[in-house]
């Protein structure tokens, strides 16, 4: 069933447009850096100063740029629409009469939203790699630790980073899915979800609530940069995964409880 759901979601014009925007960002970034001759070391976001050194860093810079807003936004759109969109169209009642099964339908929605998280991040990295390789050198990669690794090793790390980023979005996806079960208005679900991302990011920047930081789902979003060290540092990434799992369990259970008891009136 989730295969059918995946086909429906990924063939939607809206979802394709989101992926196209995510694809365009690292390409624009690479072209801008290429035309400007590259910012000096230490300027701009992490990795941007290195974007012109190697195609691998172009891809990583693409992730850094899309991570705070573009990727969460597109995930909020897809997750927020998951159940509320069906309710809004009225197709939810027909899926339940089919009968798809309430829990199974939610599971299919969850799997496909998770797939979209991975697709969004992989999309950015692939576009960055292609643009970077065309515009910039693609020899051995100098890591953040100063060592040098072969180019293919670097490519592997960039792809790994995209998967890590995808997984670190699972918490947000679960939140979006839960919000989506609460309403029949998909735009509202999307807006609330993106609002929570912004709130979490703001709280993450306020030192007075430092005690909250380890619990915020945005807190470890940049942990993937540790993959550009030599050796790769996994400590924060594992912490992040554990935190995301927590969010998935809590909000997944919320979505499940709501889905099973919801009166379908739309």
């Amino acid at each position: 069933m989730w295969l059918v759901e995946a086909r429906t979601v990924f063939s939607r014009a809206r979802v394709r447009a989101l992926l196209a925007v995510l694809l365009a960002v690292p390409v624009f970034l690479a072209v801008a850096v290429y035309l400007a001759g590259g910012p000096r070391a230490g300027e701009g976001p992490t990795f941007l100063d290195r974007a012109s050194h190697n195609g691998v860093f172009t891809a990583l810079a693409g992730l850094v740029v899309t991570m705070p807003f573009f990727i969460p936004l597109s995930i909020s759109v897809v997750a927020g629409d998951a159940v509320a969109g069906e309710a809004n169209l009225g197709t939810l009642r027909y899926l339940l009469i089919r009968p798809a099964g309430r829990a199974r339908l939610l599971a299919a929605k969850g799997v496909v939203t998770a797939l979209f998280c991975l697709a969004a991040a992989v999309d950015v990295v692939l576009a960055g790699l292609v643009a970077g390789v065309i515009l910039f050198p693609h020899g051995p990669v100098v890591t953040l630790s100063g060592t040098t690794v072969p180019f293919l090793d670097g490519v592997g790390r960039a792809l790994l980073a995209s998967l890590v980023v995808g997984v670190s979005m699972f918490g947000l996806a679960a939140i979006g899915l839960f919000v989506s079960t609460l309403t029949d208005v998909p735009i509202a679900a999307m807006a609330v979800t993106i609002g929570l991302v912004i709130m979490s990011a703001i709280l993450d920047g306020v030192s007075q609530v430092a005690f909250l930081h380890p619990w915020l789902f945005t807190n470890y979003w940049t942990a993937f940069t540790d993959l550009a060290r030599d050796p790769m540092r996994w400590h924060l990434i594992w912490k992040d995964f554990l935190l995301q799992l927590g969010y998935v369990v809590v909000f997944g259970a919320g979505a499940w409880a709501r889905m099973l008891t919801r009166d379908v009136l739309a």
């Binding site: 069933m1 059918v4 169209l89 009968p99």
Partner: peptide, 19 residues
């Protein structure tokens, strides 16, 4: 209630397969 952006046949196909 169906998906407006899909054809009638595609709608039935999805509906039939979703369960």
């Amino acid at each position: 209630a169906f998906y407006p952006w899909m054809s009638g046949r595609d709608n039935l196909e999805r509906f039939d397969a979703m369960g």
